[in-house]
Design a protein around this nucleic acid. Structure first.
Lengths: 192, 192
DNA sequence: TGTACTGTACCGTCCGGACGGTAATGTCAA
DNA sequence: TTGACATTACCGTCCGGACGGTACAGTACA
């Protein structure tokens, strides 16, 4: 039951993200989503009673998926110093290596109603705080956050500026800023 | 005449960006833009014969404004080494200090038609190339590009994560990576 | 017997865009 | 310098279509 529901939900969510990406959030219609997801409009409205609920789910899905991965990576690092920053880098690296699709759904949600930014704002605020509190060099943590945000943005808008290798190199260089055993080296970047 | 025309155009462009920001790009209607810009729908359609043309102008305006500022800053640095990166940082810093509004218009354009990403993609590709070619440390140039992109993204989505002071500090720290007279220090960040 | 849909028909609203004006200003030739 | 026409910069109205959402009858599986 739950599995079936989730599966249908996921199909819808995926369809919505795809359509938003293809034709732009403005032209994301429930009819098109239903068609792509392989069910009727009635069925779609049965699962998500309004368009707003669908968009909300799109945002929720993305944030909670990221958070789950992050917590897992943090735990794997025993919540030690810099674990939040490193976990964040690891999650982004993984979702990048696994070729996860860009979250066009979020864009669609925001385009429909800027109010959907609020939960994301809240989450990011709290995340950045945790990154800094847990990092040995808070300023550097902020720089990492910004760089990842830059990579994310490039991905979100499908700018094909950097090759996969370049992006992974950037991520790994970021990681190296934190991982050297010698703490005095923590804010010295490795040479190119 | 021309001044009047430009003024009307600018009023429309500004109105469109404001509305997009307030109600979301999806709900950006020509009627609303006309109302906000203080003219009739007919007058609006006279200035921009289609909605697509309006959105195109929104994108064009933003890109060309940035490019003009950039070229100016580059020239001020006599096109010497690192001048592109430094100019880029300076432009972003200036438009940030001057409290320029976030370019919600671009979001609106993209939301209407992802095709509007293409010119931006092209511009960014060429910009990044120029940054690297002109920089003493191309990898570091890329990192700067990503960090600025991160700050941009934060601004675009109005995440109020970093205080003004923090953002300026981040920008200036970025600048310091390139500006020290001693070239051997070029990729060592100043301590926080 | 109910949960999870399908399929269809329909309603009200909104929107982009076309169109037909019009008033003010400019141009130019007789 | 005046009358004829052109251009610019708008106004107000209308329409076809799309979209979100409702309602409801039917169906298939468990």
């Amino acid at each position: 039951m739950t599995t079936d529901t989730l599966s249908t939900k996921d199909k819808i969510l995926q369809a919505a993200a795809e359509i938003a990406k293809e034709v732009g959030p403005v032209h994301l219609s429930l009819d098109a989503v239903a068609r792509r997801a392989g069910l009727s409009k009635g069925g779609l409205l049965y699962t998500f009673p309004t368009k707003a609920k669908l968009l909300e789910a799109l945002v929720e899905q993305h944030v909670s998926e990221f958070d789950e991965s992050l917590r897992r990576e943090e735990a794997a690092r025993n919540h030690g110093p810099n674990s939040v920053v490193l976990a964040c880098i690891a999650v982004y690296r993984a979702e990048f290596v696994c070729n996860e699709p860009e979250p066009s759904g979020i864009l669609a949600a925001i385009a429909n109603d800027p109010g959907f930014l609020e939960p994301i704002r809240r989450y990011n605020k709290q995340l950045l705080q945790r990154m800094r509190d847990n990092a040995e060099d808070p300023t550097l943590a902020m720089m990492v956050f910004l760089t990842i945000e830059g990579l994310r943005s490039l991905k979100l808008f499908e700018m094909g500026l950097l090759s996969k290798a370049e992006q992974i190199a950037a991520i790994d260089r970021l990681k190296n800023l934190f991982e050297p055993a010698d703490p005095e080296m923590a804010d010295v970047p490795v040479p190119a």
